[in-house]
Design a protein around this nucleic acid. Structure first.
Length: 329
DNA sequence: GCAGAACGAGGAGTACTTGA
DNA sequence: TCAAGTACTCCTCGTTCTGC
């Protein structure tokens, strides 16, 4: 004896089914009269003649259909109103959303304008870079020519050079002829918004030129002391720094010490200016900027001291020849 | 005499490199 | 991967000089 398993709909399925059924507009009898009409529809055969029966059935069917139509209409209206109550938002909220939408659209347009402007600026800069690159290539060629000519001149090979220029298609020109026209080519002023000058070098002021990549690396230093110290090394070099003091005054820590030449005040000023710009760009307050600027000399002094200490350690540990190599690194 | 400045030296902390 | 070594930075303290 096997019991067949009946598939029982899950509660969820039951629920869904109920919902579906509820949507079907079933004829609903509001009065006993209506109910009777329907029952009569089943029993009319025995009560009236065939014709009367027919007309009666037709009229009853029509009235039933009208009743169903009416109920469907009422049900639809009720459903519509219910759904509206759930989905419609208040006018105030609608206005707010509308305003927000308009505002966002406006901002989007503004951003688009800014992006377009920046795009134009980038294109202009790219064009300038391209022109500068061409000029740089010319300079490189010129430099090669000059070095070649100087080399030949120094080695007393002028005669060979003459033969070379005469017998080949090399476009080397006499020294003066090479310089003059090229110099005039660069009389066109460079754009002011470009900080980079001298092709790949950055002008920090007071004639201090720094390799662009070095400058970018220094700018990436996280601490201000490292920034100043690295900038000092880039400007003067380790060899120079270890032979100098910040102010030029003799060491107070050692009695009878000899004063060392000072670091150039202009270049120290350049470091201070660079640090100042850096701090201002990072949003430091004036007091904080001044405080850091007062530490610049301290930073330089420390760096000099550290360099000398490093050199002395190397001298103790290795021969002088190797130590000089280390100190140059 | 005192406060401030400049410099040197020592040491702690941290980041990086190197070798097992 | 991790420990040891190395290099570097930064802070603190001591010494001396200078100006008030």
């Amino acid at each position: 004896m096997s019991r067949r398993k009946q598939t029982k709909p899950s509660p969820l399925e039951d629920h869904d089914m109920d919902l579906e059924i509820s949507r079907i507009p079933a004829p609903y009898m509001e009065s006993e009269e209506e109910e009777r009409l329907l029952q009569d529809d089943c029993e009319y055969h025995s009560e009236t003649s065939e014709r009367e029966k027919k007309s009666t059935v037709e009229s009853q069917k029509i009235s039933l259909l009208e009743l169903m139509k009416k109920q469907i209409t009422v049900k639809r209206q009720r459903d519509f109103l219910d759904s509206d109550e759930e989905s419609v938002v208040s006018y105030k909220l609608y206005q707010e959303l509308q305003d927000s939408y308009v505002m966002l659209k406006k901002r989007l347009r503004e951003k688009d304008v800014i992006i377009a402007e920046k795009d134009t600026a980038i294109r202009k800069l790219s064009e300038k870079c391209r022109r500068m690159s061409v000029e740089l290539d010319k300079i490189r060629q010129l430099n090669i020519c000059l070095q070649e000519q100087l080399f030949l001149k120094d080695d007393g090979m002028q005669t060979q050079h003459t033969m070379y220029t005469e017998n080949t298609e090399c476009s080397y020109e006499p020294y003066e002829d090479v310089l003059d026209p090229k110099v005039t080519e660069f009389e066109e002023p460079l754009p002011e918004d470009l900080v980079e000058k001298d092709f790949g070098r950055v002008d920090l002021g007071h004639g201090v030129l720094l390799d662009n990549q070095k400058w970018k690396a220094i700018q990436r230093m996280d601490s201000h002391s490292k920034f100043c110290k690295s900038l000092a090394v880039a400007i003067w070099g380790l060899e120079t720094l270890k032979e100098r003091s910040v102010t030029g005054s003799k060491s107070n820590a050692i009695k009878g010490s000899v004063a060392k030449p000072p670091l150039s005040p202009e270049k120290v000023g350049v470091i201070r200016e660079c640090l100042k710009d850096r701090l201002q760009q990072r949003g430091y307050q004036k007091e904080e900027v001044d405080g850091q600027l007062r530490l610049v000399r301290r930073f330089l002094s420390e760096k000099i001291c550290d360099i000398k200490r490093k050199v002395s350690i190397n001298l103790e540990g290795t021969s002088p020849s190797t130590s000089s190599q280390v100190s140059q690194t």
